[in-house]
């Protein structure tokens, strides 16, 4: 439980951090809240030569509104997201999801940028990020780019982040009109990680679904947007047949994880059940009555 020796640097500006990262490449790891990285280095699954602590860079945390977007700094903690009055009003799916991460201590330290960069297949926030169609700002030494959440995750703990890039901000829409959101998960009993978690955002007009986002975590090697389910519900009238069999499309084309907590077929089953329930809950919260089947 003692990491291999490493050097530690604590830049105070983003430029300095990016320079350090560019100079050290694969030998460096960024340290934000450290709640994914510390377990890895303690188990020596990761042996970085240098840790770049981002925590003293001002301007990398905080939540603010810009027009019809909310901008969340990458170093914003799960606690700050969970307790943000702005997010509770404008984008309640994020506080609801953040509240279900780990425990109090973990939420006080863990950051949204760290969670996304780590890309644990059972992390909670990616489900909400995908459902909301959020975008990530990736800042490198030469340029920066905004990338959609659904294009960010590539595979198990693998993202499009280059070794010289830092996630600096996450942008989510201010939800307006008549909408409902929900995040439901089946937690692994001891760790709280999602065996399956489903986040849903739905927009309703004249008793029809005019937009929907469904993000799924825990089921496959990477979190994903359940586009098959979204496609079938987009534009559909909300009555007692609304979800029907459509939630069962959630695992189409997905190779479910299989471990001691849940077998692949059980995970796929859970994903269908939780997708159904999460959509049902989001519709209810949008203020539309829909008899359950």
């Amino acid at each position: 439980m003692i990491p291999a020796p490493f050097d530690y640097v604590r830049p105070t500006t983003l430029d300095e951090a990016i320079r350090l990262l560019a100079a050290n490449g694969d030998e460096a790891k960024l340290l934000a809240g450290g709640h994914s990285l510390l377990p890895l280095v303690k188990l020596r699954l990761a042996n970085p030569k240098i840790l770049i602590d981002l925590s003293r860079i001002s301007g990398l945390s905080g939540i603010r509104q810009e027009g019809d977007q909310i901008i969340i700094g990458a170093l914003t903690t799960h606690y700050e997201i969970e307790s943000s009055e702005l997010l509770k009003q404008a984008c309640p799916l994020l506080p609801e999801t953040a509240r279900m991460i780990g425990d109090v201590q973990v939420r006080n330290r863990g950051t949204i940028g760290g969670s996304l960069a780590h890309a644990d297949p059972a992390a909670d926030l990616p489900a909400a990020i995908l459902a909301l169609g959020a975008e990530l700002r990736l800042t490198g030494s030469d340029d920066e780019r905004w990338i959609k959440g659904e294009d960010f995750f590539l595979d198990l703990m693998t993202t499009v982040l280059k070794p010289t890039e830092i996630i600096t901000e996450i942008r989510v829409p201010v939800l307006s009109g008549r909408f409902g959101t929900a995040y439901l998960k089946m937690p692994q009993k001891a760790s709280g990680f999602a065996i399956v978690g489903v986040a849903v955002w739905i927009k309703v007009e004249d008793k029809a679904c005019t937009a929907i986002g469904v993000g799924v975590t825990g089921l496959g090697a990477k979190p994903f947007r359940a586009k098959e389910v979204e496609k079938k519900l987009w534009g559909k009238r909300i009555d007692h047949t609304f979800i029907d069999a459509d939630a069962s499309h959630v695992d189409h084309g997905i190779d479910p994880l299989d471990d001691i907590h849940a077998s692949a077929p059980f995970r796929a089953h859970l994903a269908r059940v939780y997708t159904h329930r999460a959509i049902q809950e989001a519709v209810k919260r949008a203020g539309v009555s829909m008899p359950s089947r």
Binding site: G34, D103, Q105, R109
Partner: peptide, 29 residues
Amino acid sequence: CVIGECGACTVLLDGRLVKSCLLFAVQAD
């Protein structure tokens, strides 16, 4: 446990509850 599961090492850092085995001392400088 030293892996952040048990909470026996819990302290408050700048007023917020944390597990001190999930932080390097230098981070708390």
